[in-house]
Design a binder for these strands. Sequence first.
DNA 1: CAGGATTACAAACCGACTGTCGGTCTACGA
DNA 2: TCGTAGACCGACAGTCGGTTTGTAATCCTG
Lengths: 189, 189
Amino acid sequence: MNLKAERGAATRDQLLAIATRLFAEHGYEGTSIEAVLQESGLSRGALYHHYAGKDALFEAVLEATEAAILARIVQAVEGIADPAEMLKAGTLAWVRLAGDPVIQRIVLIDAPSVIGWERWRALEERYSFGMIKGALGATGAIPAAYLDLHAHMLLAAINESALLVARGRDQATAEAAMEEFLRRLLSHG
Amino acid sequence: MNLKAERGAATRDQLLAIATRLFAEHGYEGTSIEAVLQESGLSRGALYHHYAGKDALFEAVLEATEAAILARIVQAVEGIADPAEMLKAGTLAWVRLAGDPVIQRIVLIDAPSVIGWERWRALEERYSFGMIKGALGATGAIPAAYLDLHAHMLLAAINESALLVARGRDQATAEAAMEEFLRRLLSHG
DNA sequence: CAGGATTACAAACCGACTGTCGGTCTACGA
DNA sequence: TCGTAGACCGACAGTCGGTTTGTAATCCTG
């Protein structure tokens, strides 16, 4: 089980890479399986052998993208001990990352509608949301009863901010606003 | 020009009503024009005479829904003078409204992906976002330079909260958390 | 190492769907 | 009364997602 498995994995990776680019460029609806096949030079049978359908292909792309994002964010906050500082660093890193149209279109815009909001939520729980909630809880600024909901709202705010930055809003101002937003949120007012 | 125009308007309304229900139930992708035609008893020609295509039909549904939402929120805050109280009342009203699956699926989940994030933003600007920004600005709690971005982030947080409530989260807790969130955001920490 | 089992891939094909187009009918205005 | 424009019809074409059948190569087992 080596040559065969390797070939399969290579094919999957190739399909994933091409699909990621096309989904990011033209969105889920605007991307046809046909186009993926044409660029890859593979047949329909090959694609449907590796992925159950268009949704499954999209979900694989989404999962891979989320994993890549998480790795970059972990890298941005490593070595920071203070939870509040970590939250800030992670947030800013995410806002900068989301400038990437791949992340925008796939993770933030199409994903909820394609795989369903619940499943998208569950996925985020395992990635960005998990980190946010952990860091936010560690600051101790939010009452336990509200922690979960505050983490959700904060993540939504961050995502929105990222989308705005990517649409030409001034990045420096957005980052300053984000810091202010965090400061208020963590205040004990 | 009366009977003819009336018939046309009635047909449009009928299509809008049926499409709204189907889009809310099965999402944009899961709803076929065919199904709309079947339920309405009309022909393809009739539908395409009134709406340029499936996207245009969706957009009309979206616009009508947003208008209905705005009306209900205006009703919820009328008579309130204090901006902070108005913001609170409007926010809670919106969280409760978004329990409606029609609003959920169409406005919050499918819309950005179907008509594009920019156009969706522009639409919201004319509706819910406009109100939020006005009320938030009137409280005077947010520096002018950050007002626009804070309004965006707040609206995103509210929408997220609404989606959570509709997925079975305890509504009372969510509303309490929302109040706490607002309090912190408006604090002068 | 022989042969069945499994895997990777190919290609024709199917059903469903969106959008188009020529045409009909009827209310309206001149 | 007659021409026009708007409301509506239904057949058709093109596209797309997914299925099915077939083939070759690799893997595992006796």
